[in-house]
Simulated scan of single mutants.
Amino acid sequence: MNDLTWQLDQNITAELAKTCIQEQFFKVHEIVRVGQGADNVVFLVNQKFIFRFSRHQEMDALRETENTVLAKLQNIISLQIPDPIYQGIPTQKFPFHFQGYEKLPGVALYESDLTDEQLKLCLCSFAQFLKELHSIKADQACTWGAQQSAYDKTKIDLVIQVLHERVTKVQNLKICEIDRNFVEQEIAVASKIVIPRNNDCLVHNDLDIRHLLIRDGKLSGIIDWSDVDINHPVVDFACVWAIFPISMHDIFFKFYGNIDQNVWNYGRILALTRSVTLMLAGHQMKDAKLLQVAIKSYEILKRRKTILSSTCACSCII
């Protein structure tokens, strides 16, 4: 989710979605709208299939890449991921592509109440997932049709601009009290970190508490691959900072492998940006639970004290 344009380019109603699906695939007996984001409107069809309809032209241009990458990853990723067996094409009724896949079991992480032990097990699985995903290096990902990120989160100037804009929106809407001094301290730390670009790989690029599925207290699947592209792995590390207590981070390293401390700490500014973004999303979509968890993520980040080393650009956790 790289913007906050929530207005639909197309009025995607359940009736329109039903018509599109029936014209190209199968009879629809029941259809329920179950979600929306910046890029897609989502429907549960016949209590079995998830169908996602592009909200705008920019998303539509990425749909083919998403479908191709997901097909390639089916035998690589050990967690469950969508398998878009239905790939709808544009028509006069609906000018964008759409996709359908069997609904994955589980509920979003932010809707789950996990114990610390369950959260640790989820982190083990999440680390293994990212290790598998990031094993697809840039050259191979290119052959699958993946491209370099349009919004490059390793460019700190872009991140700072987005963070400032969204913090201002949160404050103007009185969604949450944001500590500007804390934000500027985090920016100062991240601004001194240079992310090397010799390790680019395939990244999910939109990981957060809505896109990790939990089943029976375990991480079972990863959804919403609209933004999948090529970038540095750090763009996915931010999810660890946003969700898992710092006391658990060693578990991640054990299963994923060693990570340069500068790179790891850069993920914190991305996590902060995502938490503020999710505050806006929760507010605008009137999702009280999402808003609550986003604020909690911000507060957890704020409680982590950071200092700048006098000899290097990385931040040290104390």
Rank of each mutant, 00 (worst) to 15 (best):
L4G: 06
Q7G: 04
Q10D: 03
A17Y: 00
A17E: 03
C20M: 14
Q22I: 10
Q22F: 05
F25W: 13
F26S: 08
F26Q: 11
V28H: 09
E30T: 12
R33F: 11
G37V: 13
A38N: 09
N40S: 12
V41K: 05
L44Q: 13
N46D: 13
Q47M: 07
F49R: 08
F51L: 11
F51Y: 12
R52N: 02
D60G: 02
T68Y: 00
L70K: 01
A71Q: 06
L73Q: 00
L73S: 04
Q74P: 03
I76W: 06
L79M: 09
Q80V: 11
H97N: 11
Q99P: 00
E111R: 12
D113L: 10
T115Y: 04
D116Q: 07
K120R: 12
L121V: 09
L123W: 13
S125D: 12
S125A: 13
F129T: 05
L130V: 05
K131V: 04
D139Q: 04
T143L: 11
G145D: 01
G145T: 03
G145C: 07
A150E: 09
L158Q: 12
V162F: 09
L163A: 02
V167I: 12
V170E: 07
V170N: 09
K174M: 06
C176P: 01
D179Y: 04
R180W: 05
N181Q: 05
E184N: 07
E186F: 00
E186R: 05
V189C: 09
P196H: 10
N199Q: 10
V203C: 00
D208T: 02
H211D: 11
G217N: 06
I222S: 01
D227W: 12
P233T: 07
V235H: 15
P245E: 08
I246H: 10
I246F: 04
M248D: 11
F252Y: 08
K254T: 15
I259R: 02
N265E: 11
R274L: 14
T277I: 11
T277D: 10
M279H: 11
L280N: 08
Q284Y: 15
K286P: 07
K289P: 00
L290E: 15
L291F: 09
K296V: 02
K302I: 04
R303M: 13
R304F: 09
K305E: 15
S309V: 07
C312I: 03
A313T: 10
C316N: 10
